[in-house]
Amino acid sequence: MKNLIEINKLTFKRNNRAIFNNVDLFIPKGKVTAIMGPSGTGKTTLLRLIGGQLAPANGSIKVAGQEVPTLSRNGLYNLRKRMGMLFQTGGLFTHLSVFENVAFPLREHTQLSNAMIRSLVLMKLEMVGLRGARDLMPSELSGGMARRVALARAIALDPELIMYDEPFSGQDPISMGVLVKLIRSLNDALGLTTVIVSHDVQETLSIADYVYVISDGGVIGEGDGGAITQGQSPQLQQFLHGLPDGPVPFHYPANTLKNDLLAEGDA
């Protein structure tokens, strides 16, 4: 099995706090890989590092054999044409209709005729089930529909890799089901490599071929869905079962309550 993305000894710091510390991660080609972890552990940051929007302090990030942090501007832009990314909010262009949103990457990067672009856009919209919504503006779409349109836009250029940032957060059960089905079927039908970043345990486990759980700057568990749920690490158990207290404490670090209450004078 060949890996599309290979991350070795990655270190990334923000304001002197290490978000990642010597992380190794491998994303196999043609599979759905999920990266899970509590909020604030830098899951979105990881996607931006892969996309070259951020530069790591140390380590190597190879996408399709190319070392992302050292690529030139042109090299990076050429690589990005082979990636699609779905942002948490969708990131649709608010001044363009659904149709024009999906057509945008085609118009920017190809010299296709209008008729050709029209057919391609309608095909992509058909895949996400929104061909009928092509004349709506993004403000008229529900959150789930906006994500599906963004998905159609992300696959417009037929990328090899598609990355989802929190695709399930804030969705009702129906949209969630639709998205789960779409992500899986697009991966299989188009032969994509999929990376999902999420903290929705059940949905993510149901479609992922391989799962990484990250917390505290490092990988705390990896394996296929079964191996992860069997994992013995207390951090992993707390995250998977949503326990309120555990290795991640309920209390934000502070003095003892007694000391704080007695020290009322010096606020």
Binding site: F93, H109, R153
Partner: peptide
């Protein structure tokens, strides 16, 4: 500012379109 807040500029970058240029 709104395009930035709603990730429109980031998604443009990820579509290999330079927001400075576009």
């Amino acid at each position: 500012g709104l395009m930035k807040a709603t990730d429109q500029l980031s998604s443009m970058e990820m579509m290999a379109v330079d927001p400075l240029q576009r």
